[in-house]
Design a protein around this nucleic acid. Sequence first.
DNA 1: TTCACTATTGCAATCAATTCGCATTAAGAT
DNA 2: ATCTTAATGCGAATTGATTGCAATAGTGAA
Lengths: 146, 146
Amino acid sequence: MAKQAKNHAHRRMTHQRQVISDCLKTLNHPTVDEIQTCVIRTAPTINKATIYRTMNRMVEDGEVIRIVGDDGAFHYDATLDAHYHMLCEECGALSDVDMPVLPQIDQYFPPDSDFRLTGHDVIFRGICSKCRAKKAGRNRAETGQN
Amino acid sequence: MAKQAKNHAHRRMTHQRQVISDCLKTLNHPTVDEIQTCVIRTAPTINKATIYRTMNRMVEDGEVIRIVGDDGAFHYDATLDAHYHMLCEECGALSDVDMPVLPQIDQYFPPDSDFRLTGHDVIFRGICSKCRAKKAGRNRAETGQN
DNA sequence: TTCACTATTGCAATCAATTCGCATTAAGAT
DNA sequence: ATCTTAATGCGAATTGATTGCAATAGTGAA
């Protein structure tokens, strides 16, 4: 099951929250900056503090997951079911990986540990196709190869 | 093999760098703040910017790994061989997990992906023993149980 | 519908983590 | 001993995120 909300205080469906929700559906693990860029098209006056607060409430309520990128910036993910991520080490882009979770991994965790295990995350690292293309082009240019 | 240094510019073994290196040996995945606390005992005048710069160089040179905690703060890890981590969701403490890496995980990665896979990280989540103890005590106090 | 209650917003100020510019210091090669 | 320049200390600047507060606007009840 996906981790679900403590049904916190009554949330109000404000215009801002609605617009942010809509953007979350079209964006891929966006940061607050990226959400803002999207949101501004529909609601130009929306304030960044509002986005921060809205995202914090959504995390509290279990509507989105927060992921910390390598740069330390927060990314938000509206896919609630357990899943893994891949991270481009070049551009920092985060994406969902289309594979089932591997619960058996937890069985390898040292059983005598005092740590109460609740789950695990996997992040695959590498270079996304976009950056590979960019890199190949750059290398050709630099080395004078064709 | 552990990811190794581009043998960057000539690094100088300054007093500060030496002290920081020593602290890294005794600390467990410290943040810059924690490094500073340790370092100050030996070298009280050392500046935090120096620690930041030194750690950045060490990361560049492949002498340490940088891990981003859930709070977005950087932690440093001098264990270079591939290994997994566990993270206490209560206090944010990071530790190495004593288990072999599972290269077979990479085989589950969607083979048709445009993503060039270079590896993966696993982070086990849960509650460390220290926090479990603290929590148990707190619960007893709150519910009036003994 | 209208009203009242209070969650939410916008804005500016603030905070914390990290980086940067620059004059000074000190490794370490010659 | 001297020279070159990497590294340091310090303060200012940047960046990502939070907060205080007065104004605004959902929403449930009348």
